[in-house]
Write a protein that binds this DNA or RNA. Structure first.
Lengths: 158, 158
DNA sequence: GTGCTTGCAAAGACTTTGCAAACTT
DNA sequence: AAGTTTGCAAAGTCTTTGCAAGCAC
């Protein structure tokens, strides 16, 4: 994450807040900062912990109230991998459709290009009389390294 | 759903139970029957309601304990569309990878072939050192008919 | 008879919400 | 000053679990 892209994102956020009649608060600013200096995926609880380090007064409620705003303006993507909590991650500023590859051993989530999805989703939906709103493509896998008795850890690439 | 395919599914279920040292109970039988005479997707709560019509003593706990068994032996597919409850549907007895097209207006869930997924998932995963466990491809859309002021209802195909 | 199953109700896990105080504009 | 936003704690929603009674094998 370059500084300029983070600045650009902040402008998008501020503009979105203004447009919705919402306010720029210290809490929202801190939460934004945490997200855009992290670069990885995180849960609401992760975000709460990290945010509290910047401003201990930030509450769980504010985290849960702020995340939907960031998802709304497409600065953050919500990722549901079937667990009972969701992951979030800063959206890369590019328009290629992304698939998520989720490693169940080390909890890594990779985002990879899946450009064919745009065509596929559109074609299939139109046949059914639907207009595409969103798409999700997830591949769940497990570490080959781990199966061979080698290390697999959150810190390492599988 | 032809009768023969339902019978075949029942054999798979019975065999799976036996293999795991589990027992054939009236409740499991009733739940199985409900699922394989419904043909559509359903939630745990839907299943509870329908099952209670056959056997009013069936409890929510039993529903939640039985579903994972059916998912295990691949007779039922669990579908998480991002809501806080899950959908389930009887698995078609064929091996082509299926995508789900979810209509947010009428809550229909269509399953369509996505044969390319097998290749895609495998290729992408191997590059990352992963072995594919499962994949999910979902397209979320909304009714074109409804946008044009026409009817869109659960009963109708969008 | 042994030990898996069940229903019930309570517990869990994550997320949402009502309210009064605090803050942004 | 007017109207958002916040933290807190309680409430919600779906799902899981402990337990004693009941049932399959």
């Amino acid at each position: 994450m370059t500084e300029s892209s983070s600045v650009q994102s902040w402008d998008i956020f501020k503009e979105h807040l203004a447009k919705q009649g919402l306010r720029v608060t210290n809490q929202r600013q801190a939460i934004f900062d945490v997200i855009f200096s992290a670069e990885t995926h995180f849960t609401a609880e992760d975000l709460l912990d990290l945010s509290k380090q910047r401003d201990n007064s930030i509450s769980r409620a504010t985290i849960y109230r702020t995340l939907p705003i960031l998802v709304d303006c497409e600065l953050v993507r919500e990722i549901d991998v079937g667990k009972d909590y969701k992951y979030y991650m800063p959206v890369q500023r590019q328009s290629v459709f992304k698939a998520q590859v989720v490693c169940s051993d080390c909890e890594n989530i990779y985002e990879v290009d899946a450009p064919f999805m745009e065509w596929y989703g559109k074609t299939v939906s139109e046949k059914l009389g639907l207009k595409v709103d969103s798409q999700r493509l997830q591949v769940h896998g497990s570490c080959i390294a781990k199966k061979e008795g080698k290390v697999c850890d959150k810190q390492l690439v599988c």
